[in-house]
Computed example of a mutant assay.
Amino acid sequence: MIDPFGRSIEYLRVSVTDRCDFRCVYCMAEDMTFLPKKEILSLEELDRLCTAFVNLGVKKLRMTGGEPLVRRNIMWLFRRLGRHLESGALEELTLTTNGSQLSRFASELYDCGVRRVNVSLDTLNPDKFVAITRWGKYDKVMEGLQAAKDAGLKVKLNAVALKGVNDDEFDHMVEWCGEQGFDLTFIEVMPMGDIGGEDRVDQYLPLSLVRSKLAEKWTLEESDHRTGGPARYMTVKETGGRLGFITPLTHNFCESCNRVRVTCTGMLYMCLGQDDDADLREPLRASDDDALLEDKIRAAIARKPKGHDFVIDRRHNQPAVARHMSVTGG
Rank of each mutant, 00 (worst) to 15 (best):
E175L: 14
V119Q: 02
G152H: 02
V141L: 05
A106C: 07
L124Q: 07
G99K: 03
V189C: 13
L153A: 00
D150I: 00
T123E: 08
D183E: 13
D127V: 15
K137S: 13
V130T: 12
L145C: 02
V117C: 08
E175Q: 15
A148I: 01
K163I: 11
E179C: 13
A89K: 15
V130Y: 11
F170M: 12
S100N: 13
K128M: 13
G88E: 03
T185S: 15
E175I: 14
A161N: 05
F170Y: 14
E143M: 10
T133W: 02
V160R: 03
C177H: 02
D139G: 08
V189N: 10
E179Q: 15
Y138V: 04
E188R: 05
E143C: 00
R104T: 07
V141M: 03
A159R: 07
K149D: 12
I187L: 14
E179L: 14
F186N: 04
G144C: 03
D168K: 11
R115W: 04
N158K: 07
Y138I: 05
Q101C: 12
V117T: 10
L184V: 10
R116G: 01
V130A: 15
A131V: 12
P126Q: 02
V189I: 13
N118Y: 06
W135E: 14
V155G: 00
W176P: 05
L153K: 00
E108R: 15
D122Q: 01
G144T: 00
L184K: 01
R115A: 03
D150K: 12
S103T: 13
F182S: 02
V141I: 12
A131E: 13
W176G: 04
T94V: 12
G152E: 05
T97P: 09
Q101A: 14
G164P: 04
T133E: 00
A131G: 10
E169N: 10
L90Q: 06
A161F: 12
E92H: 11
Q146G: 09
L157V: 10
S103Q: 15
I132K: 00
L93W: 05
V155K: 08
